[in-house]
């Protein structure tokens, strides 16, 4: 159980208001027709499942209903950073 700072509501709210929405920075392939079966499988099913600091998506289901990015430790559940899309992408995420 943890609190999440919604970057849109600017409030620290109970995790129960939010829903996890999976690993961040998985971009839909620009040209799906050109993908091999392996690449398509990797996009749809394979995940990093990182142990440590993990960038993921959350949605403020019972609040503003907006999606945003959270960097959270999957070991301690500590939230290290919260961000909106656009501020951070796979290029500048650390």
């Amino acid at each position: 159980m943890f609190l999440i700072d919604c970057p849109y509501c600017k409030e620290s709210r109970d995790q129960n208001e939010f829903s996890p929405a999976g690993e961040a920075f998985i971009a839909r392939p620009q040209n799906p027709e050109a993908l091999s079966d392996e690449e398509w499988a990797d996009y749809v099913f394979y995940r990093t499942n990182h142990k440590g600091d993990h960038w993921e998506q959350w949605v403020h289901t019972a609040g503003c209903r907006k999606y945003f990015l959270v960097k959270r430790s999957t070991i301690s559940h500590e939230i290290i950073q919260v961000s909106t899309f656009g501020e951070i992408d796979s290029e500048n995420a650390s």
Binding site: M1, Q15, N16, S19, P20, E23, N49, H50, K51, H54, E56, R72, T74, I75, S76, H77
Partner: peptide, 14 residues
Amino acid sequence: IDGYNSYAQRGSAK
């Protein structure tokens, strides 16, 4: 299960 990824051997009260 909790919907988020975790290696922490504990989950949410909800």
